[in-house]
């Protein structure tokens, strides 16, 4: 076969356009824009936020679709084609340096997002995301509106839940330190409130707890656990001050189960997220022991009621005295 100019030009164009018709033309003719059950149009402010999301390259680190093999945030809903109707562009993304955001709406309250946009490390200490403070309050609000709409109707339900719980949580904080802790503890199911930490507060476990505290908690609750981390001034209600918990132990003994429950599930309506997707059981109990030992001066690790020790556990005696009984039993 001799390659003549005519064959080159006509042939190259013919094959190309035939292929282009298959790959772009046929989908254009056949793909239907049918809204899925969670679809709704974006509001003007959300639309403005979407433009910001596109123009500032958020999509280079965040995807907008959940796959069948995903476990992270949003994994409850595999993406459907009808989720993207009318979005221009529905920018799916190719990289996850940060989490997928297709169901991010309502995962956090607005004040968490403000702190996070100003400096992502305020809420997520090891985040690689840049600070977006330079966008200014108006654009950050628009961006927040868009992010809170991700997931559309499903997001609306979550945002409504955040709003619903924000009121009593803020009111509890306003009613004083002790009343706030009482309210928080009253939100934990009864069975968890008298549950001691089943893991011994060994040296190694406290080390692990410390590392988790530094990677997840430190910039809200602060290096000394007083709730005065850099995110403090953005949050309403502000992060909990752990050092007041000493006078709120259940029956003056139990705190592990409350820690576990609140770390696991978060406190919807406040900036406290749930951590059960990030941390498995042992890690949460280790963190609970670290919080107790470091900031409360007490942990209920391994006290009664307890079952048979796990096979790996070394003999470990809880020597942390209950509040008010310091010195008792030590001979002093």
């Amino acid at each position: 076969m001799k390659m003549t100019p005519a064959l080159l030009i006509v042939g190259a164009l013919l094959v190309f356009w035939a292929s282009a018709f298959i790959i772009v033309g046929i989908p254009s003719l056949t793909m239907k824009e049918t809204p899925s059950e969670i679809w709704r149009p974006l509001t003007a402010e959300e639309e403005a936020g979407h433009r910001l999301y596109v123009r500032n390259g958020c999509s280079y680190c965040h995807s907008l679709y959940i796959r069948i093999n995903d476990w992270d945030i949003g994994a409850e809903r595999i993406a459907k084609s009808g989720d993207y109707v009318g979005q221009e562009p529905a920018i799916l993304g190719s990289e996850r340096t940060g989490p997928d955001l297709s169901q991010e709406g309502g995962e956090h309250p607005d004040d968490w997002h403000l702190a996070h946009f100003v400096n992502p490390r305020f809420t997520s200490p090891i985040s690689l995301m840049p600070s977006w403070e330079f966008l200014g309050p108006v654009e950050i609000r628009q961006l927040t509106a868009y992010v809170q709409a991700l997931g559309l109707k499903a997001a609306d339900a979550r945002v409504a839940r955040q709003r619903y719980w924000k009121t009593p949580a803020a009111a509890a904080y306003a009613s004083g330190l002790d009343a706030n802790v009482e309210w928080l503890h009253s939100q934990v199911p009864e069975v968890w409130r008298r549950m001691p930490n089943p893991y011994p507060a060994s040296e190694a476990s406290l080390q692990r707890g410390k590392r988790i505290y530094q990677e997840f908690c430190i910039n809200c609750h602060g290096p000394v656990g007083d709730g005065k981390g850099p995110a403090f001034r953005y949050m309403n209600p502000p992060p909990l001050n752990f050092t007041t918990l000493r006078r709120h132990l259940v029956e003056n003994r139990y705190i592990g189960g409350i820690f576990y429950y609140q770390i696991m599930n978060g406190i919807t309506g406040t900036g406290m997220p749930y951590f059960k997707k990030h941390l498995e059981s042992e890690k949460i109990w280790d963190l609970a022991n670290y919080l107790g030992v470091s900031f409360v001066g007490y942990t209920d690790a391994n006290i009664d009621p307890r079952g048979i020790d796990a096979s790996y556990e070394e003999p470990w005696q809880n020597r942390y005295p209950q509040p008010g009984q310091e010195g008792a039993g030590t001979g002093k």
Partner: peptide, 12 residues
């Protein structure tokens, strides 16, 4: 926008 509306944009 330089984009199509909806999911088909990813194909373009």
């Amino acid at each position: 926008t330089g984009a199509m509306p909806g999911l088909i944009d990813s194909i373009f």
